[in-house]
């Protein structure tokens, strides 16, 4: 199962499950992007009639090969998106969660929302100038809605709080046996400065530009829920702030587009709790450390021979980006 024709046949056979027994697939094409999942766009409807714009999200070749041990699987992801939509989070509507007899492997189908996901366009194109002004508040509200979802009401998800993640990424870093003094200082400071614990809530796990659809009016959908977990709400609020996800616009702490105060105010106003910039400092430091270790993991794929591409080699020279980000953060904390 993998050719475009085979996929099209399987999708055509879904018929009424996609809301129209006479519906046919047209214009099926693979979209780029998506680190571990295949994403396909297609139109569905009666020939000559009105079509619905849909997205197929599918494990590569239909077989699950999660990008990390933490990924929750497509069935859980679909269930979670349903819950998020019910809670008022802007997200796609899941049309069908695939069963084995559908012949598509692990997959679900959702409606296709028009807009842009490429961060550099959202941050630079004139078309999104008005959207950029609203985005910090909209993201704060969306995060509050995500975190308000009753965790008794979501699929069985892994639990990972801040100290769990610090321990997990420290272990990976030590496993590489590549001493990096900046990482040592960050680990030491993070351990000595753990913020007060909070009750676990549903955490998106990859809440940042790239996983958000934005149109001229601002945020229209939160995508890519596969790293969702039970955790610390402040993780989502700080992950969008780490400098790597500001895509060159360092001066705007939230995603390269927004002001932290405005973002946190909107979060609190939409039902989230009060979160202080100092708490974001800790989580942003953890986030930059995690991203640095992730770059080391990607480089390790080259070093071990698993992926000999020049791209995997090059990413090893991006670990230093997270080192300077950590220094900037720690210097600000020290001098505060």
């Amino acid at each position: 199962m993998g050719t475009t024709q085979e996929l099209e046949n399987a999708l055509n056979a879904l018929g009424s499950k996609l809301g129209d027994p006479a519906g046919k697939v047209s214009d099926l094409k693979r979209l780029s992007g998506g680190a571990s999942q295949e994403t396909w766009a297609f139109d569905f409807g009666p020939s000559g009639g009105a079509v619905e714009d849909l997205i197929l999200r599918r494990a590569p070749g239909g077989v699950s090969a999660a990008r990390s041990q933490a990924a929750i699987g497509l069935e859980n992801e679909a269930a979670l998106i349903d819950r998020a939509v019910a809670a008022g989070v802007p997200a796609p509507r899941v049309v069908h969660s695939c069963k084995p007899e559908d012949g598509l492997g692990q997959a679900f189908i959702m409606n296709r929302i028009a807009g842009e996901t490429i961060a550099r366009k959202i941050l630079r194109d004139d078309q999104y100038a008005t959207a950029r002004e609203k985005l910090a508040a909209q993201c704060g509200s969306a995060a509050a809605l995500i975190h308000s979802i009753d965790i008794a009401d979501v699929p069985d998800l892994p639990k990972s709080m801040g100290e769990d993640q610090l321990a997990q990424y420290e272990e990976i870093y030590r496993g590489f046996d590549t001493p990096r003094p900046v990482f040592e200082l960050a680990i030491q400071w993070l351990k000595a400065s753990v913020p007060d614990a909070v009750e676990p809530s549903l955490v998106h796990g990859d809440f940042r530009l790239g996983n958000l659809i934005v149109d001229e009016t601002g945020l229209v959908a939160v995508l890519d829920w596969e790293l969702a977990h039970l955790g610390d709400r402040r993780e989502d609020l700080a992950w969008i702030c780490i400098n790597s996800w500001r895509f060159g616009n360092s001066q705007n702490r939230v995603g390269g587009f927004g002001d932290l105060g405005e973002f946190l105010d909107a979060y609190a106003a939409a039902g989230g709790v009060e979160v202080t910039p100092a708490e974001i400092d800790w989580w942003e430091t953890l986030g930059s450390f995690k991203w640095g270790v992730m770059c080391m993991i990607m480089y390790e794929a080259f070093r071990s021979g698993a992926d000999p591409s020049v791209e995997r080699a090059a990413i090893g020279r991006r670990v230093s980006e997270t080192e300077i980000d950590l220094i900037n953060l720690l210097e600000r904390v020290r001098d505060a």
Binding site: N243, N249, S250, R317, R318, S320, E321, E323, I324, N328
Partner: peptide, 13 residues
């Protein structure tokens, strides 16, 4: 960074 990614925003900061 001046070797690895001289245009990186964090370096300017």
């Amino acid at each position: 960074l001046e070797v690895d990614q001289p245009k990186y925003s964090g370096l300017r900061e």
